[in-house]
Amino acid sequence: MKLTLHIWRQKDANDKGILETHIADDVSEDMSFLEMLDVLNEDLILQDKEPVTFDHDCREGICGTCSLTINGRPHGHEKATTTCQLHMRKFTDGEEIFIEPFRAKAFPVIKDLVVDRSPFERIMQAGGFISIHTGAAQDANALPISKINAELAMDAAACIGCGACVAACPNGAAMLFVSAKVSQFALLPQGQPERQKRALAMVNKMDAEGFGACTNHYECEASCPKEVSVRFIAKLNREFLGASLFEH
């Protein structure tokens, strides 16, 4: 396959940045998107040019490290797929591909396609945990949880914290991420003691980090590689309102 790649190049957060065009001549359709960039980078290194910087880690679609906005869609056009699991056979020979970073004020560009997603870590530090000892594996098995709640909690816990929701949202809102994290605890008995405190702390931290407000475009759900549902945002609204009224 031969592809024309328009890749965002930016030296650091203060640099203006520009789209740079590269031709990838010999792309195998069995490559993943990141492998295609690896090959491009090897060529760039051989030509004594600066390779393209991008984030990646497990390359198995579970760690949430890879990012990239491909042709205007975080993680590309394929449904429920991270960039590392997106394969070149999903593109056509001769296609032009625009590769940009995840864009949001809260996610400043560090270099090229790498953005600083540490606001997510700080939101987790504000309340995305359980302070009590919940026991070992057998204690979890001994605790009866209704099937519907167990499954909903798992659906929420599927969030890998990649930030695609923020990148896709026209408002730069992090509601899908925060709602998944608040919901996974709110649905399980272990999460009950700190339920209201957690909802307040995580949402307030989200606001303080400069994320936007949800206007229910649902672009986040469409881009989420783990298909986290916007129904959790509806749940977050309820959790937060309840906590605001009753927790002081």
Partner: peptide, 11 residues
């Protein structure tokens, strides 16, 4: 919400 996206997507 306007302030959260200072850099626009090219595409």
């Amino acid at each position: 919400n306007k302030s959260t996206k200072p850099a626009k997507y090219q595409v």
